[in-house]
Nucleic acid binder design. Structure first.
Lengths: 257, 257
DNA sequence: CGCGCGCTTGATTTGCGTCAATATGCGTGG
DNA sequence: CCACGCATATTGACGCAAATCAAGCGCGCG
């Protein structure tokens, strides 16, 4: 269902009955190369709706460390991640902190139907965002059951991930935790890395040791020690943030099932 | 209050007796006193649909310890919890276990649009269930946007909870963990318990020490020791599974924000 | 009764945190 | 260019909270 204010557009459709034209040429420039159109929530939208959303959207670039909740980005804006890594944090009054989730492109950011529940949202790396007003998305949701389904899917996926990390944080040793984390990042940077005796690959960690500690429930020192141990044992090669996975098999093995 | 409102309506309805009859008497017996009709997913259904669902539903009672995934309850059945506590678990090949969630009435059990993701589902206490075939629920979802929204809401709530427990498991001390857990149970058994200097209340823990340990990432011994400490310090009174909260304020304080 | 199971309690060990010192960039300004 | 300061990492020595090991208790049940 399309909003009424597009009357002239409606007329256009009638005079140009070739629907295919709209499908091919109707995709906003902003969106043509956007991941969110395929794997993200925008995949649920018709070209027309995509145009509507795109018109209300703005692209932002945030530097590392920028908070995107209650601060720069008021709560009335939602967004898709175009690139970069976003961390979701919770903290105790005395300063202890836990990272409760990491989001990558093309994840949807922002919680539908409620205020963001006292969790902090922060750019872990430079991040670029495609953001749009809450009202627009809300309206599209009413009109498009598929959109709500996508949101449900993402929520369920995040739920699975959160539960997986609960296991890691609650029951694994420091070594296993760090291995699991490396696997998460490696897989996210290069999804093809999964093969058995894969040649592995190198990448830069998107998080500082402090962040990694906050994610795994460890201190920076312990994280650092585990890195050097993994290096010494030949599973990886570390130099600062640069990591190369040398033995994917043993790493995955260490991380546990 | 409820009674009064009903009486008033009944008088009004006399002008349209047939339809109202359907509305009042149309609620399946199975459902009349069911929590799921109010706070659960069934609240999104029209009476007609409720009848359809109820007709396909069966009530089950499971004893403590019963597995409800891939076992007694095949994956093609979903269910609402009518009473009891259900635990969601994950485990490592070597036997280490983590409880990644607890569900109470009237939560919906079962994951829409996918196989249950390698997580175990088990009755922590005797549990009664209202279960129905996947097909029926799937069909109702297509027809009722509100239903999908309810599912999204529950998923988002569970996500919040999972993240809250990630913080607890990752960053809190044993004492804080146990206090947080007691709060969770206390609040769930008696939602009115929340007041500041509330008189507090007594209840039976729905979980064994082993389960509590698996939930908090602790051993039974540590859980036990923390219980006796909280008892000695006068925050609670423990005797086996029976717990009485004596000082809600201090307990909540200990649990952290 | 005696056996098993859930729970408590104590003694001992240990993995990880804490504290502290040192290194390694990296930007900034002299 | 080097010198300096600051943030991030590494490394080591030490301490402690929680795990592990080990009895022993209460209680329901065959």
């Amino acid at each position: 269902m399309v909003v009424g204010r597009d009357r002239q557009r409606r007329n256009k459709w009638k005079t140009r009955p070739v629907r295919q034209d709209i499908h091919t040429s109707g995709i906003p420039v902003l969106c043509v190369s956007c991941e969110a159109r395929h794997r993200g929530i925008c995949g649920a939208l018709e070209p027309i709706q995509l145009v509507e959303l795109a018109r209300a959207s703005t692209k932002h670039v945030l530097e590392e460390g920028a908070e995107l909740i209650g601060d720069a980005e008021p709560i009335d804006n939602y967004a898709n991640i175009l690139s970069g890594v976003v961390k979701l944090t919770k903290s105790l009054p005395d300063g202890r902190q836990q990272i409760v989730g990491l989001q990558f492109a093309p994840d949807f950011l922002g919680r539908p139907f409620s205020e963001e529940s006292a969790i902090g949202v922060e750019a872990a790396t430079p991040v670029s965002l495609c953001s749009f007003p809450r009202r627009t998305i809300q309206r599209l949701i009413e009109a498009t059951p598929g959109l709500e389904r996508r949101l449900l899917m993402q929520a369920l996926r995040e739920l699975d991930e959160a539960r997986g990390w609960m296991m890691t944080v609650g029951r694994k040793t420091a070594a296993e935790k760090v291995a699991s984390f490396l696997l998460l990042i490696a897989r996210n940077i290069d999804p093809t890395l999964d093969g058995e005796g894969a040649p592995a690959g190198a990448f830069d960690l998107p998080l500082t040791r402090a962040d990694i500690g906050d994610f795994l429930g460890l201190t920076i020192e312990t994280v650092s020690r585990q890195f050097t141990r993994l290096d010494r044992d030949g599973l990886i090669s570390v130099k600062g943030r640069r990591v190369e996975v040398l033995d994917m098999g043993r790493l995955a093995d260490l991380a546990g099932a």
